[in-house]
Amino acid sequence: MFFNRRGSKKYAYITARVRAMKSKLIQREVFPKMMNMDLAEITRFIGESEYKQDVDELAQKYSGIDLVEHALNQNLARTYRKLLRISKDEPHYLITEYLRYWDIWNIKTILRGKYYGATLEEIQEAVVAAGQLGYRQLISIAGMESIDDIKVALENTPYHSAISDYQGGMLSTVENNLDKLYYSRILSSMGKSKGEKLSLKFIKTEIDLKNLKTLFRTKKADLPRDEIMELLISGGAELKDGDLRRLVSLSWPDFIKSMEDYSYWSALSEVISEDMPSLMDVEAELDKYAMKYSSKVSHYYPLSILPIFDYIVRKNNEINNLRTIARGKESALSDDIIKKHLVM
């Protein structure tokens, strides 16, 4: 028992450290205060907090919203790389797999950028080097002209199989392949211990929420059945393959009604209706649900990977909130609209 290979001994250090890091995140009551600041004040505010190093480093190169954007991205990448640095063995492996999300994100960003003819600077702005692909590697990939060069550059990575068939043109298939690759890898990386079973449920819930978002978007846009099925990821916790097939074939009003059968209804019941004009509220509620869920499960099994996943989710959410406020202020949006986009 004491010498169990998958015991708690590997998690005591990292979870305590991650909890201390979590206590340094921006508190939720600070965000409304930031709504009263203008962009320069926001920059100064984050420059005096955990983002000091990033803002100081980038202040010579960028200014205004670009500075905030780059500082946030760099900080996110730095924080996640730190998690990899301070962990080893099993937690390290699981964090690596979980953070592959950002590799997928970057590859998608670069391919999208290429498809729409974005400049290198624009792609650079959206790249977050938090996964296994480093910043320099990503920038060099982003600088490549042809899709074939990009494929060659990714040849020795696990992502090659997902993009090997891509010939340019519409991105939905390749983005799908990448998502499916990511989730199949992470699902297969989990073992059988009690903590890992809970982690598995966490990942499966994440898949459910992702599928729900896809379902809401595609059902609202009234896409054909087969196209929707292709976009969905199997392996969810509540929405199994059978449920997905059933939901896809329902009409929009029936689809909304059938949501009542799932536990996600508690999160959605307030904002969901047949004639809702936009899905903004639904997606915000789903994001909130994901955050609440991750913090709830992180207390069920404190010496496991779950508190670390919870931190990863929260840090990403903090960055998204800061970006929303900064971008909103820059485009002179009203406070109400910005507030609706914040996930707290």
Binding site: A12, Y13, R19
Partner: peptide, 8 residues
């Protein structure tokens, strides 16, 4: 181990 982690 946890104390050192938190202290770091």
């Amino acid at each position: 181990a946890a104390a050192v982690g938190a202290m770091a």
